[in-house]
Design a protein around this nucleic acid. Sequence first.
DNA 1: TATATTGTTACACC
DNA 2: TGGTGTAACAATAT
Length: 324
Amino acid sequence: MTGIHKTQFLSPNSFPMPELPEVQTVVSELNRKLKNRIIKTVEVRASKVIAIGPKTLPNIRSVGPKIVKKFIKTLKGQKVLSVKRRAKLIIIDLAGPWTLLVHLKMTGQFIFEDRKLLKKSKGYYRILNRKTAPKILHPAKHTHVVFYFSDDARLYFNDVRKFGYMKLVHDDEINQVRELAEFGPEPLDKIFTLDLLKRFIKSRPKLTIKQYLMDPTVVAGIGNIYSDEILFHAKVRPERKLSTIKTDEWRKIFAAIAPVLKKGIAAKGSSVGDFVRTDGSWGQMGKFHYVYGRKGQKCKVCGTIIKSLKIGGRTGSFCPRCQK
DNA sequence: TATATTGTTACACC
DNA sequence: TGGTGTAACAATAT
């Protein structure tokens, strides 16, 4: 078996959340698989993960049965036009005047099952022919929403932590969705420049570079994994204050962003934790990490032991020798 | 039982 | 006042 890396079996306490490359992997796969499919019905097994309307979701909530009913009724018969991404948000555009916004947060997963690939076993269906996929029967313990398509294909939304959500928004209200309006530029967009990256640095001189890269209003889609990897490639330590970063270092940081994210996308995401592709298989980016999740191991470049620090309440990993 | 995890938000402080 | 920094919170497995 080739595709399995030992870091895939870390404890749940070290689950990283999907970032831009992981979300892009899911979005590309869903766009291919869901496009033009028609939703026959929807099963809501945990109402906490669904919502209707543009409002930002409060931490504590669980919608009532009326909302669940409306959620299901609205989605019934809808054709999927396309699946897109903005930052880490999945945007499912429906033929009617509705859009389904999905955030995977830390441990959300989408699993797609085409009936042709399935074999019935004890009343459930099992994905076949996937050596690199964990064998999990669906619906699983943490499956909260199931989409049944008219051709009998199914889409499962799983989330161990239930931090993820699906929000059904009317197209007239889509401009009121704050997490769509307030994101910074997409780092893989042509318009993203070094000046755009640096546009807030003067007002926040004491902020660390890692926190700055992870701020979604500065640049969209970068989290703990990719900020660590970007800073390794730029040879800059994560705890450095913005005011101490030299012009040349800013250039290196900017130059590292797109290649690191693109490598993540090419590897179909990083499965150090819970992330799986829509067929249940793991992404391969974890094998290519230089620092993230490698505390105590040798630097792949110089052999020095990788260290980690708490930065703004988060863990940042770095090579004490390669990074200055 | 305490702890780890991240995006979001509530709120304190200049 | 508004921008910035900080801590709490959501749920769960270990």
